[in-house]
Nucleic acid binder design. Structure first.
Lengths: 236, 236, 236, 236
DNA sequence: CAATAACCGAGACGGTACGTCTTGTCTTGCG
DNA sequence: CGCAAGACAAGACGTACCGTCTCGGTTATTG
């Protein structure tokens, strides 16, 4: 069950490519304007960078990991740029060179992790694939560390319009579009609106339970939810 | 349509009392340990305050209003204690004397405003009362300034456990308990669990749409939601 | 041999007064616009400060002393505001509240120390008083720690016009005016121009030797200089 | 009136030679250890440098000029290596390769300019030559841009021992030795000590007036000074 | 009808983190 | 190899708020 579709929107464009066609499409589709990091995807392109001093991959990873660790340990408010720099063994300026804020760093982490945690099968086709995906989503949102990042960013998006914009146009919208398409094909629905309605009917209780009720998203709850919402779908 | 049940948990205990038994019960039930504001609830109690000057009502209101205004103008992150103090014409220490943090101030504002905005009729009895309440809730959450406060606090609760604790045990839990009871009686449901399920089925999409999708909670959406969720209830 | 005339231009106006008439005159004459510290000399004056929170004398002294120590230990370039704050056990903002720059701090130190080191007798009257003063000046400039401060500020005044302005209009001009007057009366000269010429003839070689030649200002050199410049004066 | 004696201690050894014997002697005498720039003294040697690219003369001049311009425009404190590099269109590393600090760059500028501005006639012989030189010196110190560089370096030498060392052993000592010799021969003095005394008697007031009093070194002042100090010399 | 005790404004204080700037070192690729 | 370009670790800059702490001045009982 490999991830599909959700592009990997890493900051550093000059890394060993994988599945070139995917990356190319994804980066071409949205050149990460939010972070502004992805500069000139093709390194061999004629109009590329002129010379010298590429971005340090080691520093980039150290920052992302340190931010993740510190978020878990001290929470969002206790997460500081200086703290990340110190924990990553990196100069503060190196962080500011590539990210605008701690939100930006967490966003990069989210994209990185969500890509692998929220994948669909290559060619999803049955309602069972939808059920599996929703279970994966519930686990991600409710239990995994990377889900905590999404939760924190969703929270912060309520407080800061720039975070909201970044999170939606850079992640949520795309995730939703992909999920809608898969749901539609798996359930054999007539149009995207119907698929979106089904998706919302399933995800809304999950988000509600996680963000508002603060109760665990256990498998039983998810199954009951799916039974209720999916089984009645064919009837429609 | 007057508000009922949701207690007014203002900071200042020395205001013209209303419906003493309600206040007493509410405050006794949870003496607002989070804010620690409600001091010496019974002003008529024998061994009450001894001497000296009382809390300045003018200062209290100036702070609450200033916080509201600044939240709207500069957002949660741009809201500072010093800014509130300056805007309210109040000394910083006066704020710290009565509130622990800006979250605390916003919480007081929320309680104040939600009390009047999210009321139920004195004796709700019909499904129409539920529909009306849900419409009121959607308007509150999606459009009113005070709803922005709830949204901000919900967001911040994702980032800070203390805020989450305050918001839930001081506001959301109680709100929910009250709403569940009313829904149960209005719809003639057998037990609270069923009522809670109906309430969640209605509120989850609202929260989801407001917090995650960031789309307007227009009346048509709410009506469609109510049609779908309420009409099938009697069938159960 | 007590100091006279050179006003004590300390930052803090609210200290135990000494020789009130002197302080009053001095502060009235030039309210230290350079540092902007001296605010409302008389604490009992009607238009004085309103209430609460006076400047901390302990912090002020700690900063001045720390700056002095660190200048000696690390030199002017190695002297940082952060270093001073750390060494003084004081918050950085406390320094910025009262001083504009490290130059400002050193200037306060200079005024403080020069006041006591470069005094004249109460009523100087003989050429011997001039000789003694010049010896004192040479010792101050060439050997004493406070003289190092003057030397550093003179050096920095070559690099920064604001330092030059502060040093001259806040210290050197006044020092010179006082010295000219004393020289004139001690040597019985006809006018200030002549006295200034004598003073310059004596001080120029001292400054030259200290700042340009970087050779010690030993007593023998000073005596030879005085013999040469003072003995021929009556002949004029 | 060509310059004599004061060696040209430029950074770049590969420039069109002039008066080869002089340069050779000067550079041999003190291989500029302070800057460490003078590499491979003999520029005319056939087998000098073997291979690889040579130092870029264009870059060297661009740096020196940019430093001069920026010093005039922004002052010493506003002069930064990065600023010089940007203004000169040169990489930062190119500067660090050849100079240790901005002081070093200014020093090279000083040597370059002072060489032409502070020259003596080929064979100075009369007191008039001394008078002319002192006038030239006063103009240089007080008015010319290059004099501002000397003034800045003298100022910085008060703050930084390394600058003091560089300025004295690399420039001032030599200048003084040359001037003493010329004064001695022009005035027919018996020994160098006497010549040095005369020179100091003339230069000290100039430095004092420029560095301490910050007053203009106008021709009238210099003439009066020379009248006073030189006319009495023959009497000795 | 003072005494007195808490509130209030004002704001200094020790701190922490911010985001910017410059330093001096380094690495990369062009010429 | 010099050079332009520029990333990097380091660390000081000056600012903004934090939460705590005096100050005097005011005010309202209460002894």
């Amino acid at each position: 069950m490999a991830r599909t579709d959700l592009p990997d929107r890493r900051a550093n464009p000059v890394r060993p490519a994988r599945l070139a066609h995917e990356d190319a499409r994804a980066i071409a589709a949205q050149p990460s304007p939010a972070t502004g990091n992805a500069r000139s995807a093709g390194s061999t392109a004629v109009g590329g960078r002129s010379a010298g001093s590429r971005r340090s991959e080691a520093a980039r990873l150290a920052v992302l990991n340190a931010a993740d660790d510190l978020l878990v340990e001290y929470g969002f408010e206790g997460l500081t740029i200086e703290g990340i720099a110190a924990a990553a063994g990196v100069a503060k300026q190196t962080i500011y060179r590539w990210w605008k804020s701690k939100v930006d760093i967490l966003f990069d982490n989210l994209v990185l992790d969500a890509g692998s945690a929220l994948g669909w099968p290559e060619h999803p086709s049955s309602p069972a694939d939808v059920r599996a995906y929703v279970h994966r989503f519930a686990t991600f949102l409710g239990e995994e560390p990377a889900g905590r990042v999404l939760q924190a960013l969703l929270g912060h998006a309520q407080l800061d319009p720039r975070t909201a914009e970044l999170l939606h146009s850079g992640f949520l919208d795309e995730l939703r579009a992909r999920d809608v398409a898969h749901v539609r094909s798996c359930l054999g629905l007539a149009d995207d609106d119907r698929a979106a309605a089904v998706l919302d009917a399933v995800l809304a209780p999950l988000y509600h339970r996680a963000l508002v009720l603060r109760r665990p998203l256990d498998a039983a709850f998810v199954d009951a939810l799916l039974d209720q919402q999916l089984d009645q779908q064919p009837a429609r």
